[in-house]
Structure formats: C-alpha cells, structure tokens
Amino acid sequence: MSQWVVKGLRTGVKTTNYPRLPDTAPGLSCGLPATTDLRGEHAQALVARCPTGALSVGRRGIEVDQRRCIHCLRCRRGVNQQLAWEARYEWARVTDKSNRHDNRFGAAFRRSAHILVVDAGDCGACLNEVKQLNNPYYNMHRLGFFLTPTPRHADVMLVVGAVTEHMRLALRKAYDAMPTPKRVVAAGACALFGGVFGPSFTCGGGVAQAVPVDVEVPGNPPPPLAILHGLLVAAGQRQPASSCG
C-alpha cells in the first residue's frame, strides 16, 4: 500500500490560502448580482425577468436582495443590458435575531467547532458544495471545523434546504438535542426563503420558520468558500458581509 503514500506526497498541497489570503482561482464562485446604476426601460425589463423578486428599482438604480438570488442568470443572459455581477464569495450575514453587537458571538467556538449538517430538503447542490469543504482544496479541518453525525457533539448546525414537512420534526429534534451555546447557519437560497420550492403544501419558506437562524449564506448553491465564510462568521473568526447588496 506504500504506493498511496507516495501518491499522496507527490500530489503536493492543493489547499486554498483562504481565509489568510483571498482566493482568486477561476471557477470558485459564480458570483452574485450587484446593485447597478441602471434606470428606465432596461431596468424595468431586468426586474421583470427576475423570477424571485430579488431585483427592484430604487434610489441607487437596480437594487439587489442577494438573499433571494437563485443563480438563474436571467439578468445576465438574453438581455440587451446586463446586470453587473460580483465574483466574490464572502456573502454570509448575521441575522437580526443574533445580537451582532455581542462581541462574544461565536467566542466559544473560536478554536474548534463541530458541525452537524442537516439536509432539510434541498436539491442536492448545496449539500454537494458542503461536501466539497472536506476535499483537499478547502480542507476545513485545518480551521478547526469538524463534521459530526450527532447533534450531541455539535456546536453549529449547518442547514440546507427549504425545510420539507417530512424534515421539520427531525430538524427541530436535532436542534433541541444540541448543547448550548449553539449556532445555526442556513446556507442557500432555499434555506433562506424557500427558493423555487417553497412555501407550498410540502415545503416551508426557509429554515428560520423552524429553528432560529444566526448566520445566512446566500447562493444557489453557495460555493464552498461562501459556506466556509458562513462557518467562520458563526465561529467569530471572520467579519460578516456588509448589509448592502
């Protein structure tokens, strides 16, 4: 089996320098639409194309509610005047529910946090991006993040999906079974407001309707570094994104 040791060593280090340095590798993130100074007919056309109402015409032109973006790219494709997209990934925000002025936010998890991942009914893309956090490119162990299969060991619950009726009880039970202090990170458009799925007869309108959410990560799906940023925010190691789009 020594071949594997050699193979592993030969592969070298693949891991990103984030959060020490920004990562700018191509293909990391598809980006999010940004507030653009566009008015008039073109602006109205773009707003009408957005299927989730993430765009609106405001004081600064087209204003973007990034929480509601589902990456359908319809404000970028098949239009005369495109909306500007920013290609970054530090999107996570602290919710109003969490006291953002409390400087002890996440202090208990600063060195190490165990994470319970709950798929509360997504399409599998968000879940797959969460899974990538363990691949050598992101290797979240180096930052003290570990996945745990049991809520009893979990400090942070990372939830994806709009919360289906079938998952509501399991999600609640898992949350209640976690010891305090605990944090909930909701990742992906569905987890934030229901996405294309909810609310409906079988889907809720996001995680916050089932358990209290501390950190929100927009994206459909959020790329791995965006989720990692969300975890760093929950652990008090990184500043959240500023609140404007």
Partner: peptide, 13 residues
C-alpha cells in the same frame, strides 16, 4: 471547469 465554461458550477441557467 464547469463554472469557467458556463458561469455556474452545476450548469444552472
């Protein structure tokens, strides 16, 4: 590679 080519890692849109 998918994201660079098509703008989305899972080919949405």
């Amino acid at each position: 590679i998918s994201a660079v080519l098509t703008g989305h890692r899972y080919f949405f849109g």
